[in-house]
Amino acid sequence: MSDWGTTSELYRSSYRDMLRVAFSITGNTAAAEDAVHDAFCAVGPRIATLDEPLPYLRVAVVNRCRSMHRSTQRAHRHAAAHLANDVAEHDRRENESRGHGLTGHGLTGHGLTGHDLTGHGLTDFAGALEQLSFAQRTAIVLRYQCDLSDDEIAAILKCRRSTVRSHVRRGLAHLRKDLS
């Protein structure tokens, strides 16, 4: 028998964290919400039987994101447009707060600090992240946003630990190349 009281608690305590992960992977608010809610629907009835529901929930969220990635290329492009707007707004606010205002490259942080990578705005980063394969993107999000270990990421991505390391290393290399 499902324990929806426990599910509610889990939902309230973990919803935002799950949403951050899903948003970073899918790049889209609606898709992220769908993925997280779908995951809760799938995990909810089993919550009472799980010793540690959080890792299980995280796997479910990533799986939902993967499904979306696979099946909705069109939605993905749509999401990219939304993401561009969201992060562009973020960059605009960030630049304004620094007193730089808009740059000659539009809403990104190009040109603010020359060739220093840290000077690139979130738009560039999100765009570069977008270009990674699903596995590389997810591995990087789980590593650097969720601070998960190789073993934990391997369990989520259903691959070997060495493959996780490879995804992360290659993903970082791609990001550096795109941002440099």
């Binding site: 949403l19 951050r20 899903a22 948003f23 970073s24 973020h90 980063f125 990087i140 946003q145 970082l172």
Partner: peptide, 20 residues
């Protein structure tokens, strides 16, 4: 660069909806 990625991902995550 890894620290930059970490920072950017946190910023990206902050753009996720906050309403529960």
């Amino acid at each position: 660069f890894e620290q930059l990625v970490r920072t950017r991902l946190q910023q990206l995550g902050d753009l996720a909806p906050t309403e529960v």
